Simulated scan of single mutants.
Amino acid sequence: MPTAGPKPAWGGIAFSLLPRIGLSLSMLLGVCTLVFLLIHLVPGDPVEVMLGEGARPADQEALRHALGLDRPLSAQYLEYLGRLVRLDLGVSLHAQRPVLDLLSERVGPTLELAVASLSLAIVLAIPLGVLAAHYRGRGVDRAAMTFSMLGAAIPNFWLGPLLILVFSLWLGWTPVSGRDGPFSLVLPAVTLGTGLAAVLARMVRSSVLEVLGEDYVRTARAKGLGPLAVLWRHALRNAWLPILTLVGLQFGALLGGAVITETVFSWPGLGSLLVEAIQTRDYPLVQGAVLLIALTYLAVNTLTDLLYVAIDPRVRAV
């Protein structure tokens, strides 16, 4: 097994992460700008949604002026950036509540679903991937890869209703939708977790197979170590970096909101909130939700870089 150099000081790690943090902030500003422009340029009028198409033109103009929507886009954009600096995301046009309050109510359910789904994916994928690599070309490998292909091919908008039909309507084991107890988490987590496990299992198999051909693994076998010790103590330990990358990306995407799954199961998370905000043309809420999703995704990927150093000190955050 290759020897690793001394661990870098955390001050040096933080300094080396400064360019990435600067890039992340630039990307976040770009996301805010793009969403601001797109949400204002697409067809539709939030005033008509709030008052109805039969409202009088005078009432529409009065509401548009009160909301500041009659001002130039440049003025609205600068005002929006100024509020962001003060951590003020504005007020929802539809709910007439602070956007930050609405987002804080939906973060908990999304985090709960993301942790449950990713935990299920890891529990399924790591043993499947390791066994598939160990029994390469045999029945276990073919069965694991068949599961992987099926899990990646079956879309969530088909699997979710199928699980509802079988386990909720036919068997009556779980609630149909909503978030009314621990059992209501089972079907959404399975819907998301199986798809993630399918992708992750292939990555685990590929990474372990690559490591099994290294010299230190052959040396461990020559010393008389058993297959399990070789797989878990040597091969999997050194195959973690690409696996960790995929786990970080998946977790960031889940925290961003699994829109389809949350919609199918009426799960009150960020994804369903974003869909509702788009349907009602709620500019501040859409911008706040996308900003939170982008910030979460960037934060998870930055944390992944730090974990690289903790797992393998030879890796330096770039």
Rank of each mutant, 00 (worst) to 15 (best):
G248P: 09
G248F: 09
G248K: 07
G248T: 05
G248Y: 12
G248N: 08
G248I: 07
G248S: 14
G248H: 12
L249D: 00
L249C: 00
L249M: 15
L249T: 12
L249G: 05
Q250Y: 11
Q250W: 00
Q250P: 00
Q250R: 10
Q250V: 04
Q250D: 13
F251I: 11
F251T: 11
F251Y: 14
F251E: 11
F251P: 04
F251A: 08
F251H: 10
G252A: 14
G252Y: 09
G252R: 06
G252W: 08
A253G: 14
A253E: 13
A253S: 15
A253L: 15
A253W: 15
A253Q: 13
A253I: 11
A253C: 02
A253Y: 14
A253K: 02
L254C: 12
L254D: 10
L254F: 14
L254Q: 08
L254Y: 12
L255E: 08
L255T: 09
L255V: 13
L255C: 08
L255G: 02
G256K: 11
G256W: 12
G257W: 08
G257V: 04
G257E: 06
G257L: 07
A258K: 05
A258W: 09
A258I: 07
A258C: 06
A258E: 10
A258L: 08
A258M: 12
A258N: 04
V259T: 13
V259M: 12
V259S: 03
V259D: 06
V259F: 06
V259E: 06
I260A: 14
I260N: 01
I260D: 02
I260W: 03
I260C: 00
T261D: 01
T261C: 07
T261A: 13
T261S: 11
T261I: 06
E262R: 07
E262P: 03
E262T: 09
E262Y: 12
T263E: 10
T263W: 10
T263G: 02
T263A: 13
T263H: 03
V264D: 02
V264N: 04
V264R: 05
V264S: 07
F265M: 03
F265P: 01
S266N: 14
S266V: 15
S266D: 13
S266Q: 13
S266R: 11
S266H: 10
S266A: 15
W267T: 01
W267F: 15
W267K: 05
W267E: 04
W267P: 01
W267D: 01
W267Y: 15
P268N: 04
P268F: 07
G269V: 06
G269M: 10
G269R: 04
G269N: 07
L270F: 03
L270S: 01
G271M: 05
G271L: 06
G271H: 06
S272D: 11
S272V: 10
S272E: 12
S272L: 15
L273C: 00
L273R: 03
L273G: 12
L273M: 15
L273H: 10
L273W: 02
L273E: 13
L274T: 15
L274E: 02
L274H: 01
L274F: 12
L274V: 13
V275D: 02
V275W: 06
V275I: 15
V275R: 10
V275E: 05
E276F: 12
E276H: 10
E276Q: 15
E276S: 14
A277V: 07
A277G: 08
A277H: 07
I278T: 13
I278Y: 11
I278P: 00
I278Q: 13
